[in-house]
Design a protein around this nucleic acid. Structure first.
Lengths: 253, 253
DNA sequence: ATGGTACCTTGGGTATGACCAAAAGCACTG
DNA sequence: CAGTGCTTTTGGTCATACCCAAGGTACCAT
């Protein structure tokens, strides 16, 4: 029984097989269940030590799986009693984070970001004119009220970003809103400490915002699209002039 | 010395302080260094056990930090001898992944994805007409050659996606290209197994692609923008008709 | 010589067990 | 009854041991 004939006609053949990492297996399983809706938002997953006994994995493995889901924005983890991992739907934030990484890691020029915005944001304005609700209009009005020609630069930029994000969310397209959130965040940090935002630029911006807001309120999709396009184009030109001289890159955040 | 007067006039005041997690501290440090370019692409970080002695942290903590960076697409980890963590610049893939999560997690309608594409891709076409190189044109030509009116549906869709991605990359705007890669991937998986792509749709698509390609080749930015807009709009209408009846949602991938 | 097999070395992956830290609830004391 | 401090629950960190993967190398048989 211990020695086979050397002339055996059937050599053992095995297919190449891949062994996935245990933590990935668990993470994938949980991710699918979360995305499928089996675990609605706010559901608390079992404590780590419970998962250990249920999955027969070590606590290290369980924790790595949870870490993966946390980075992907699918769970939020809190310490302390009645803490644990709570299911969370991924929001625009996670998209914004990865876009930020792309921009910073690839050293993408500020001009390229404005190019992208020129494509996306007019569409947001168009959709906003189509789908805006009363709540959206109120938020836009509030953003317009908050912006002023003569406060600290930081306040102006913040109010500026708020208005743009409000337009994006008024489009009722979460995908566009998420992307715009990312771009706005990056543009905000990149525009900070830039001297080209003078009083003239501020006045022009306020006027343009008001006109776009009017179009959205009136439900005039084409006017909203056109006015937003013009606004962004002029703003981009102002930036380009500066960049030609100083080669602005996106700073760290 | 052991008892102070109860009437001490100076009560101790402490500011609320936050203690970040050790693994986050390490991850943030490495991330900043990677993004700043201190660790160029391909650099191999020290082995985990070396990091342990250098950082005075436990291996668990080091590994969690590496897992965070891995999920964010900043390092790639290989096992075995001469393995380890290798620095990687975040690419369009990581953006695509997070967009996928957003879409699946929020149950975003296919129509909303097409809306977003209608904003982004015409801009890609416009920029492509402006900045395309000979290599870009060759790639577009190859994509056009690969698409055919009568093969398996899967091949048609793949060639379709390839062309759209090629247009996006011809824009020489990595941000737009990354976002388009994400959308294309999602649209691909969502359109698969959809019956509305009949022979008529295919012929129309091929013709439209050819016309957009011509405009890009000629450097006619406005024609590229206009033709791409029309192409997408017609495609979207076709989808909308189906969705009204069947309420397509984006399936899992 | 030479080619293949087995072993060695270096790396990440997993399992345990212990202990620290944060947060909510409870119990005890003044 | 208020306030303070203990207790419990749950995540965070550490240390150690061992397993698995992948190159490199030495050695043996041909």
């Amino acid at each position: 029984m211990t020695s086979e004939p050397a002339t055996a006609a059937k050599p053992v053949r095995l297919a190449p097989m891949q062994v996935p990492k245990a933590s990935d297996v668990l993470a994938n399983d949980l991710r699918e269940r979360i995305l499928s809706g089996e675990f609605p938002e706010g559901t608390s997953l079992p404590p780590e030590r419970d998962m250990v006994v249920q999955t027969q994995m070590s606590r290290t493995t369980v924790r790595e799986a949870l870490r993966i889901l946390e980075v992907q924005g699918l769970v939020r983890i809190r310490t302390g009693r009645s803490g644990g991992a709570f299911v969370q739907r991924p929001g625009g934030d996670s998209v914004a984070d990865s876009v930020s990484l792309l921009i910073r890691g690839r050293h993408i020029r500020l001009a390229a970001i404005f190019e992208a915005r020129e494509g996306i944001e007019p569409t947001c304005a168009r959709l906003a004119a189509k789908y805006r609700t009363d709540a959206d209009l109120a938020r836009l009005a509030a953003a317009n009220a908050a912006i002023s020609g003569d406060g600290p630069l930081e306040d102006f930029l913040q109010a500026n970003v708020d208005w743009h994000v409000a337009v994006a969310e008024a489009s009722h397209n979460e995908l566009l809103a998420g992307i715009m959130l990312a771009l706005s965040r990056v543009i905000y940090t990149a525009t900070d400490n830039q001297a080209f935002v003078d009083a003239e630029v501020r006045r022009t911006t306020i006027r343009a915002h008001a006109r776009v807001t009017e179009a959205i309120e009136a439900g005039d999709t084409e006017a909203a699209l056109r006015r937003m396009t013009r606004h962004l184009h002029k703003y981009t030109e102002a930036i380009s002039e500066v960049e030609d001289r100083t080669a602005i890159e996106v700073p760290g955040g």
